[in-house]
Design a protein around this nucleic acid. Structure first.
Lengths: 133, 133
DNA sequence: CTGAGCATGATTTTCATTGTCATTATACCT
DNA sequence: AGGTATAATGACAATGAAAATCATGCTCAG
């Protein structure tokens, strides 16, 4: 007989509750420090684990802000496709749409440019997935 | 008298040339390994330095693919604004546009969702910048 | 109550990136 | 050409974030 999923994952829930109460997109360490300040006894490792599992289950999202570890020789603005299966990134031959900036400028932001990434399956991985099923 | 900018930055140019010849958005280490395989005598630190300076000068771009180090409690699709000055990230109250996916689907990709980030100055930083000038 | 399996904390390990520093190369001036 | 200031490079150390490991303790079904 299978063991049921434990409902009592106290620390994980505390991490989730803390994150739900904020709008500043914190890192694992920032959440950890806040929780400790609030008197919660929790370890940094648990915060990392909690966030990872919450993100895997889709209860929490990670930010789509650019990291600096992969480079693109094309500086002309263009969009990307990110394959969730093979992790490759493709340059897309689509027109850049500066008019998208207008909407956020109406909210008071001064927009220099934007980045747009589509996530899904590339043609090769669609093929592979089809064969497996 | 000022010293002029040096034109001869051999290794940096080799890094740039190698990157220009690829479409696979490599990391610093991947570029380093390729260069060594091609017989280039170069150190990993130099590749990192070259890429960083090329990116700062805008000769090369970094990828806008999501890293996993900042978390967002809102899983409903929504867009973000990233302030280039204070580095804060704001959730934007804008409608999600699934119709954007159509264009990349025409190119053969299977799109699950997309991420859109606007980059510029937030209202507070626009104010600060105005005062400095 | 008991024990199998999961959750947690403490610690170590890994690995990517950056910093440091000594050395070499280059450009500018005389 | 020679001298020197400055930049570029390489080798290595240091840093730091994230993950892995491992021992302990908790939970729940029986």
């Amino acid at each position: 007989m299978k063991i049921m999923l434990r409902q009592e994952r106290g620390k994980r829930d505390r991490v989730l509750q803390e994150l739900l109460g904020r709008t500043d997109h914190p890192t694992a360490e920032e959440l950890y420090l806040t929780l400790r300040e609030k008197g919660e006894e929790i370890s940094l490792a648990t915060v990392y684990r909690a966030l990872r599992s919450l993100a895997e289950e889709g209860l929490v999202a990670t930010l789509p802000i650019a990291p600096a570890d992969r480079f693109d020789p094309t500086t002309r603005p263009h969009y990307h496709f990110h394959c969730l299966r093979c992790d490759r990134v493709f340059d897309l031959d689509l027109p850049y749409k500066p008019e998208l900036d207008r909407a956020s400028e109406k909210l008071g932001f001064s927009v220099y440019h934007h980045t747009l990434v589509f996530h899904g399956l590339c043609p090769a991985c669609q093929e592979k997935t089809r064969r497996v099923e």
